Every structure is written in C-alpha cells, then in structure tokens.
Simulated assay, not measured.
Amino acid sequence: MHKMNAEHSKAQLKKLAWLLDDSIRIPGTQLRFGLDGLIGLIPGIGDAAGAIISSHILVQAAQMGVPKSLLLKMAFNIGLDAVLGAVPVLGDLTDFVWKANQRNVQLMNDYFDRPGKTELHSRFFVGFAGLVVFGVVVLIGMLGFLLVRWLWLSVQGG
C-alpha cells in the first residue's frame, strides 16, 4: 500500500476506534465509552453487531499487510470484547476498560513502527493461546473419560 494511503488509513482507523471506544464521556467523571458500548446494550444482537463493526479494523489491517499472528491477536481482542459484552452488567462495565478497537489500532501502529518486536510478541501470544486451548481440550477429554469410567463402574456395581 502506498505510504500516503497507509497514513490516511491509519488516521481513519484511529478515528473509528475512538468513536467506538472513547467518544462519550460520562459527565463529571473521566470515564469514557463509545458507540460499541451503546450498541452492546441491544439485547441479543448488540455485541455481535459491535464485533462485526470492529472487524473493519481487522480487515483494513490485513489489507495493509499486517502479519497473520498479529491479526489473530487482534481477532482475540474482538472476540473477548464480544464474549465479555454478552455477560449482563459485567459486559457493560468492561466497555470502560477493554477497548478492543483502540488496542487493535495500537497493535497495528506498533507493527508499522517496530515490525520485528511486535510480530515476535504476537507470535508468543498466539503460541501461548494455542497451548491454553490444547490444555483445555486435554482437560475436557480427561474429565469426560473419568466421568464415563465412573458411570461404567457405577452401572457394573464396582
């Protein structure tokens, strides 16, 4: 992507992240949230709609050449925001803390400023997340095996 177009895209994505995560200040406080928090209040579809809108930043980062490991980290931020947002009350409170869109724009900008360091960190993150998922799958498998074994022994009277 041409440098001038890339700078324009980065500026536009920064504005979008601000609009989604920080554009509204609660009067009398320093607490801020954005349209993502308001959209998340719509029962049933709000958090999914917010995730879809947030995915625009992810798509733009991919078009700008951000590596897959960093895109996975950005997708994790969007997913976590959507999952936390689906939890009543907790999800609304996390809109003040977990600003996935601003995190993602910052990750993207960090990559363009320090590509080697940022990509290395994102690879470690993806590797660690993969290990956690693998561990959870193994744990669920072991618990399932133990449950079936216990049920079998109970039925056999042993």
Rank of each mutant, 00 (worst) to 15 (best):
H2Q: 08
S9K: 03
S9A: 12
K10Y: 05
Q12W: 05
K14T: 13
L16S: 04
A17E: 09
A17T: 04
A17V: 08
W18E: 12
L19Q: 01
D21M: 02
D22Y: 07
I24Y: 00
P27E: 01
P27G: 06
R32L: 08
G37L: 04
G37T: 00
D47E: 15
I53R: 08
L58F: 07
Q63C: 06
V66I: 15
P67L: 09
L72N: 04
K73Y: 12
F76M: 13
V83S: 07
G85N: 02
V87W: 06
L90Q: 02
D92S: 10
L93T: 05
L93Q: 04
F96Q: 05
V97C: 07
W98D: 04
A100N: 05
V105D: 04
V105H: 05
L107Q: 08
M108F: 11
N109K: 14
D113W: 09
R114P: 00
G116K: 07
R123D: 03
F124Y: 15
F125T: 00
A129T: 08
F134N: 07
G135Y: 14
V137K: 11
L139S: 13
L139F: 12
L143R: 11
V148D: 07
L151P: 00
L151Y: 11
W152G: 07
V155A: 15
Q156E: 07
G157Y: 01
